[in-house]
């Protein structure tokens, strides 16, 4: 019996948008339920704009759900987000990590807010920076770093306090192969120590390789959930790749075929 760390029940979030002076309600998240248990990597997979990032923001208490409940360590992120965040690491889609601070300032700020032990953090930080080969940027202003380096800093910021849950929104974007390898090792260690990971991505290969269980989101709804084998069963495509399963479950397989056909025709007619 493993412990459930994140529990999401029937979550709904609507946005009011004003398009051409008409109020339009978009259902960013439309009734999603899933659990993340201790010691597993749960992948949220979905096409662009499916509602992954909104779900993650709801988990962190950055947005308020219209309906449904979220439970992290038995607490409600809307009310007790501060307590929850003490044990969470978060990597956002965009590395928005204070443009005008240096790496040093950033980690001073983080360790002060998190009330970390300075000498211990110092050691950890050095190790992480060295293993990501980013130590030479320690005194640089973050804005001048490349996207990949910013992403590295963000990843280090999310793991420096040994969180119980890691919430990662497209964390591998912009990382080089070496850093990806390092990061995967870190994730493995994290899982071995009894942590949990919620991993959102739209890249199939990574999901297939890393995740224990996968939830496929499409248009704000969960269209499939389970291990890869279970998903294959659900989509009646035994032995198929995750890509095919994904396209099947998100009802995109037929439209993709049509698009490809059209493209080929126009290309050949040239």
């Amino acid at each position: 019996m493993t412990e459930t760390l994140i529990q999401v029940q029937d979550l709904k979030k609507y946005f009011e948008q004003n398009i051409n002076n008409q109020h339009v309600q978009t259902k960013a998240v439309d009734g999603i339920s899933f659990n993340v248990k201790k010691g597993e990597i749960f992948g949220l997979l979905g096409p662009n704009g499916a509602g992954k990032t909104t779900t993650i923001k709801l988990l962190l208490g950055l947005l308020e759900p219209n309906e449904g409940s979220i439970n992290i360590f038995g607490m409600n992120p809307q009310r007790e987000d501060v307590k929850i965040k003490e044990h969470i690491g978060y990597v956002a889609e965009e590395p928005l990590i204070f443009r005008s601070l240096t790496t040093k300032d950033l980690f001073n700020f983080i360790s002060s807010i998190r009330k970390l032990n300075p000498s211990k953090t110092q050691k950890m930080l050095r190790e992480y920076l060295e293993s990501f080969e980013a130590i030479q940027y320690y005194e640089q202003i973050l804005d001048t770093l490349s996207h990949g380096n910013k992403q590295k800093m963000q990843i280090i910021a999310s793991i420096i306090h040994n969180p119980k849950i890691l919430i990662l929104d497209e964390p591998l974007a912009g990382l080089d192969a070496k850093s990806v390898k390092v990061f995967k090792e870190i994730l493995d260690m994290h899982i071995e120590n009894g942590g949990a990971v919620l991993f959102s991505t739209h890249i199939m290969k990574i999901a297939e390789e890393l995740c224990d269980r996968i939830g496929i989101i499409s248009k704000g709804k969960m269209v499939g959930i389970g291990t890869i084998d279970e998903l294959r069963k659900q989509s009646n495509k035994l032995g198929a790749s995750l890509e095919d399963v994904f396209l099947r479950l998100t009802d995109q397989d037929i439209s993709v075929m049509e698009i490809i056909k059209k493209l080929r025709e126009s290309f050949n007619n040239k």
Binding site: S112, I113, T121, L129, I135, Q136
Partner: peptide, 29 residues
């Protein structure tokens, strides 16, 4: 940057209270 001696870089983590850390961050920004 490539010539920097990694051993030379001193990593120091300071610790303030949350309010002070916040003010410091705002002022540096």
């Amino acid at each position: 940057i490539e010539d920097l001696n990694i051993e030379e870089i001193k990593i120091e983590v300071a610790k303030y209270g949350p309010i002070k850390a916040y003010i410091k961050k705002d002022l540096t920004t």
